[in-house]
Amino acid sequence: MNQIVEISVSDKKRWNNTVKSINNYDAFYLNEYVDAFMREDESNGVPVLLYYENGADRAINVVFKRDVVKDHHFDDKLTPDTYFDLITPYGYGDFIGEITDYATLNDVYSKYCMDNGYVCEFVHFELFNDYYQRYSGETETRTHNVVRNLESPMDEIWMTSIEFIMARWNAVMQRISFTLKKTFFEKLMSMNNAVMFHVRFEEKIISTELVIYRAENCYSHLGGADFEYFYTRANDVLKFEIIKWAKEKGLKNFALGGGYGADNRIFQYKMNRALHGIKDFYIGRKIFDKVAYQQLLRIRSKGNTEMEDRLINTGFFPAYRWKGDWKNSIYATPFMDATTSCRRHRIFKVSKRSEISKTFNMPVISGESRVVA
């Protein structure tokens, strides 16, 4: 009998045991990972693990369940626990496992969502999974990720990109700041699949990167550097040490993240480390309950047909969660969720005085930086 079972984030043991029963599961599905994001920002919603079984077919999916009534546009207009929309966690997601009958999986999932008041979903598809090709909703790729294959010799991996790095270094790294709480890192680092790398220079941490990994792949997840020490090229040292560590662990791929296109400087910086490793990143959306979706859109637009059309034309999904103003609607990106953009990597600044390894009691692999003339 085919069915989907929903596992609560509060049931950590059952959650992780279910995830680890799937071959080649990824760290983004683990309880500690999604719990950290839930506690960081309640607007992310409540994470749930979906376990699917149909004969020999077994699969999991992790989503954040968001109650629409908590959006301020629907204050006093809806009953709590009536309408929800779903979004995959920051990182990657979708159904992974041993699947032979995708049509049945999609049908069962759609019915399950209808029965549980899940109006629609927004998906960031797994990089190393082809479920997006079998997804029953709409999909597209507007951004790319850079993936460094780790099966080549170490000297070949590094020398294929070093000339490009030296030529373009001064035109590359434009930084943005993003603040995350200490408890977020503590929760994330409680996973066995997370490692923090540091570069020290003159007894200071000047560059750091958090890497999440599993059986075959590792991901550059969060990172940053002290602006004052960019001249040391500490980020190059950091990437070199991470690649070396990943090869020693027998990992096959290092996903550096993405950007908005070939002209984006951050994307160029990453691409220099994997000249032939550009991989399309797919996103998707699906409306399970078209009647409910239309009703929510009508409430959001206050019954004004013209406003409803404008909401749809922003390109945000779901349209009823559009949070921008009409003057800036030109910046809306099709398929971009109203609260979570397609951008894969956030950057946080490391304070000059921070001693991250001591503060968070996390595993450290340190590289010593040399000043480059």
Rank of each mutant, 00 (worst) to 15 (best):
F348V: 15
F348I: 11
G223F: 01
R344H: 11
Y112M: 12
Y282W: 07
M114G: 07
D337M: 04
K358T: 09
E368D: 14
I165C: 12
M154L: 11
G303R: 15
Q133L: 14
D263Y: 10
E98D: 15
F164W: 07
A171D: 15
T208M: 12
Y52P: 00
N54A: 12
G45I: 00
E355D: 11
T314L: 08
R298N: 12
Y90M: 14
G224V: 04
M1V: 05
Q295C: 09
Y131G: 01
T79G: 10
C113K: 04
T183P: 04
N44W: 09
N44A: 05
I205G: 01
N54F: 10
Y135L: 03
V146G: 00
F64A: 11
S190G: 09
P318Y: 14
K327V: 13
R66T: 13
I7A: 03
L238W: 00
A255T: 09
F84Y: 13
N106M: 09
K244D: 06
E138S: 15
I243H: 00
K12A: 08
Y33R: 03
H73E: 04
G45Y: 04
Y112V: 11
L311C: 13
A27D: 00
K252T: 13
R175C: 10
D130Q: 15
R298M: 15
R298G: 14
G223L: 00
N2H: 06
K352M: 08
G324Q: 04
R285Q: 13
A262I: 04
N253R: 00
D81R: 07
R66W: 05
N17Y: 15
K65I: 05
K13F: 02
S152H: 06
T340F: 12
V146A: 01
N16M: 07
T305G: 06
E53T: 08
